[in-house]
Amino acid sequence: MAHVTVIGGGVVGLAVARELRVVRGHHVTVLEKENGWARHQTGHNSGVLHAGLYYRPGSEKARMCVAGNASMAAYAREHGVPVSVCGKLVVATDEAETGRLRDLAARAEANGVPARAIGPDEAREHEPAVRCVAALRVESTGVVDFTGVCAAMVEELTRHEADLRLGTEALAVRRAPGRVEVATGTGVVRADALVNCAGLHSDRIADLAGVRPRARILPFRGEYYELRPDRRHLVTGLVYPVPNPELPFLGVHLTRMLDGSVHAGPNAVLALRREGYRWRDASARDLVEVIRFPGTWGLARRHVRTGITETLRSLSRARFAADLARLVPDIGPADIVRAPAGVRAQAVLADGRLVDDFLIELVPRQVHVLNAPSPAATSALEIATRVADRVSSVLN
């Protein structure tokens, strides 16, 4: 069997390693630069098990998310990881949004997602505090402990004697005859193939490997609030707005977590560092890359109004609460408190267009996962199957 090096220890990297080692029997080494697993996108996301209704029919996101909704829930249950498939509401708060809600219902049907249009009275049966003129009830949406999923995968990989290396950053990548070599601070890892699942740094790993990716990563911070404990009763499940179809972000929404807390968000603002979880987290290197990348300016021209709105909401709790109050009118600024933020690795093309689907690029003996934001966590087991298939193709 082949020996494969996987760079990245989030849910996608671990799922790929599991597929290669546990399912297919390859020898696997996983390199993770942090001293723990799932420290970035996986460990900072909203924990939502997505249904797959938002994505373009026939796209990788649509197919993998619908399948991943079932496979991830089944994996969590099999391994004792907390999961709850509680359903959600997507709500139109005025008549102007009902057309987009109908379009979303049609997309859900095309993608095979169980969803049905309901009126405001039935919506309040699910969420008594919600305000809307119409809603879409999506039964297969849920919440899951993705960090727990990663722990279960690590346990499986350990039992199957995979080589798991924390605190091991990939510093250089070299192609050699019949293999790929990765230099780290503790030595060189030699393997038959390389899989890059580095998330926020995936384009940089591709650069190290001599691959010129057709998209670059821009980091978008998603900021969260949560409802104060005495206001959690206002939300019983998940409540989402009707999204802007031109953007991959779903708008600030409300999610009852597995522990009973209710998270609100995220927004989307350009982070000043690849791992910039706060405004004061800044990196000169990262900022220079962002400024020099033509796609940054193309993106700004395309979405200047949205960018201003998101930034103002980031700086104002009152604005954040006002957007939540469109969904649940009883929420006010005093009802929410700051919660930890996440950073989304969003691939952007040189002309400023956002890559709206998963992006995987192949070269001999290498597979690079270059765009895997939401719903990648939901889809991780399906992405792993696809990537493992492609490892076989790059070895031949």
Rank of each mutant, 00 (worst) to 15 (best):
G265A: 12
R18P: 01
A191C: 00
R174C: 04
R273E: 14
G260I: 04
E60R: 15
V85P: 08
V242W: 09
M1I: 02
R319Y: 11
D103I: 01
V180L: 11
S202A: 15
V195H: 12
V149Y: 00
A76N: 07
R214E: 15
R319L: 15
L272T: 05
I360L: 12
A76L: 03
K61W: 02
G187K: 07
F220M: 04
M257D: 14
P120R: 15
L234I: 13
M153G: 00
G260L: 01
Y75F: 15
N45I: 06
R344A: 01
A73S: 13
R21D: 03
D94H: 08
G43S: 14
A341K: 02
R305I: 12
A284N: 05
R179N: 05
A334Q: 14
V355L: 09
G222I: 11
C150S: 04
S392A: 04
V304Y: 13
V394E: 02
L272Y: 02
R278E: 12
A209N: 11
V252R: 15
G276D: 13
W297T: 04
G68W: 12
L254F: 03
V195N: 14
V48N: 02
R212S: 10
D323I: 01
R216M: 00
E169N: 06
G8H: 10
G342C: 11
V367S: 06
L324V: 12
R386M: 06
P243I: 08
G295I: 07
A321Y: 10
L104N: 09
G222T: 09
A183H: 07
T158G: 04
G36F: 08
D145W: 10
T168Q: 12
T385K: 11
P219M: 09
I308P: 07
R344D: 07
D145K: 04
L254I: 12
A384D: 15
V189G: 06
R280S: 10
R137E: 15
V387G: 12
R338I: 00
C150D: 06
Y240V: 04
G298F: 08
A282I: 12
H126E: 09
C86Y: 00
P248S: 06
L200M: 05
E109S: 14
A318M: 01
P82C: 04
C65S: 14
A117M: 10
R204F: 09
A334E: 15
G112Q: 14
R190C: 05
T42E: 08
R344G: 02
P364L: 02
A388F: 00
Y224P: 06
T311D: 07
V12R: 05
